[in-house]
Design a protein around this nucleic acid. Structure first.
Length: 423
RNA sequence: GGCAGGUUGCCCGAGCGGCCAAUGGGAGCGGACUGUAAAUCCGUCGGCUUUGCCUUCGAAGGUUCGAAUCCUUCACCUGCCA
């Protein structure tokens, strides 16, 4: 595999480097041979999410440019949990963490190539921590960490002000730093990157390597993506923006990208797609001129959904979105088209001849969490059957409402659709 | 270990015996305006068999006609002292 010398320029142009160690030294390393690099993922949930995707794609960019990935899933660090501002984490038990390790691995694998000269390797930090004795850990690792430096870290400072931090989480940085040292010694890994919230842990590792071996290694951090108003990204009605289709339907995933704010489209295209620079700049120009076309959002939704859920699924979602958001008269749609669309959006089946009220249907489809909420939605004028507003909470759909003889399209607000199939 | 303060709905935070399903802000949800945007404005925001009923104010008891509000015990958190 030949090296792509423009890699670092491309990463910088895409805005993927928020912090870094000496960039000139890194550039030198990246152009003189295949650099072994690592990026870590802690199994703190059964699925990875939006923020992790940025790291996965960045790893793929590096591999595509000829460098060698070590993808670390934190079976050990996941047992501890890195400190975050929202306070002390609840510890997960070993069985849970171990199951999540497997799920996270399977999510990462499709993005990397495990063949060829720069094949990727999956590693688990449990492998080099579980046999380590406390005394060895304190002598070999702990000795290199001045507590005054650890206390000065931003997250720790904030936690101390906001009510304290346990020794467990305070020690997290030692574990992650040890990972870098271990991968450096065992595999010759000389570059680590991660999210900017991990920057303290990442530099901790680089510093540990320097103190323990005298060698200097490379690191960079990707930026934290925020909405235009500065708040955190990655929320949908279902919670975080999960990559697992069981936890967030591909349809909702697609919709998330399609609804991205105008100001963020360019940034997200650069970070989350592999489109070349000229194409992204052309999209941005189109977008600036005619924002109402939302060409940027459409390209973004299509490309990212294809990366995560595949081209076939993406095509189905696009057809579904077109059918549901096309407005107008739904009764002209064929039952097949509509059925496919509604299964993407989510659908429930009810028995023919025993149709429940609109209120009950809103609850059954999950559009409303309780009957009270369903009634409220109807009272607010936010409930629609086949694109027609429903005003009576006790209304029952008629046989003549069934599209193609078996489908009802239930909508709450502007964007939430669910199907009801009468069987 | 001692002393003091705290624990209220998704989050923050009022309430300090009846007028409390509980002020206010944020988030969320719906409507209007739009481009399935942003901003703004309006409404809504425990549950139900909904002119009423049921369950909520860290947990369990108690006082009272009546408690989120008073008392007791327990749990957890914070600060100061040791």
């Amino acid at each position: 595999m030949s090296l792509d010398p423009t890699l670092l320029d491309d990463l910088e142009w895409r805005g993927l480097i928020a912090h870094s160690t000496d960039l000139d030294a890194l550039r030198e390393a990246l152009t003189s041979g295949s650099v072994r690099f690592y990026v870590g993922f802690d199994p703190t949930a059964p699925s990875l999410h939006l923020g992790n995707l940025m790291q996965i794609l960045t790893a793929k960019r590096l591999q595509d440019a000829g460098h060698t990935p070590y993808a670390l899933v934190g079976g050990a660090t996941g047992m501890i949990g890195d400190p975050r501002d929202s306070g002390e984490r609840t510890l997960n038990d070993a069985a849970t963490v171990s199951e999540w390790v497997g799920r996270v691995r399977r999510q990462i694998e499709p993005f990397l190539s495990f063949e060829g000269a720069n094949a990727a390797t999956m590693v688990n930090n449990l492998d080099w921590t579980q046999g380590l004795s406390t005394i060895d850990f304190l002598r070999d690792i702990g000795k290199h960490f001045p507590v005054n430096r650890m206390l000065a870290r931003e997250t720790v400072k904030r936690r101390l002000e906001a009510g304290g931090i346990s020794y467990t989480e305070f020690s997290y940085v030692l574990l992650q730093s040890m990972d870098f040292l271990s991968l450096y010694r065992e595999h010759g890994v000389t570059l680590q990157f991660g999210g900017s919230d991990q920057w303290g842990n990442i530099t901790g590792g680089a510093e540990l390597i320097r103190r323990a071996t005298g060698d200097s290694v490379h690191a960079f951090a990707t930026p934290l993506i925020t909405k235009a108003d500065g708040t955190k990204y990655g929320k949908t009605e279902g919670g975080a923006l999960w990559l697992d289709p069981e936890m967030l339907s591909p349809y909702s995933f697609f919709q998330f990208w399609l609804n991205v704010e105008d100001e963020k489209v360019g940034e997200l295209l650069r970070i989350f797609t592999f489109l070349p620079r000229e194409e992204i700049e052309a999209l941005e120009a189109t977008h600036a001129e005619k924002p109402f076309l939302r060409a940027g959002q459409k390209a973004l939704a299509e490309h990212v959904t294809t990366l995560v859920h595949g081209p076939a699924e993406t095509a189905r979602i696009q057809a579904a979105s077109a059918a549901l958001f096309g407005g107008g008269d739904m009764s002209t749609l064929s039952a097949d088209t509509l059925g496919a669309a509604l299964r993407e959006a989510g659908a429930v089946t009810v028995e023919r001849g025993a149709l429940p009220t609109i209120t009950d249907l809103l609850v059954e489809t999950g559009l409303a969490k309780s009957k009270g909420e369903a009634r409220r939605t109807i009272g607010e004028g936010g409930a629609y059957l086949n694109n027609t507003r429903v005003e009576d909470p006790e209304a029952v759909p008629a046989e003549s409402d069934l599209i193609g003889g078996r489908w009802l399209v239930l909508r709450k607000g502007k964007k939430s659709f669910k199907g009801v199939e009468v069987a």
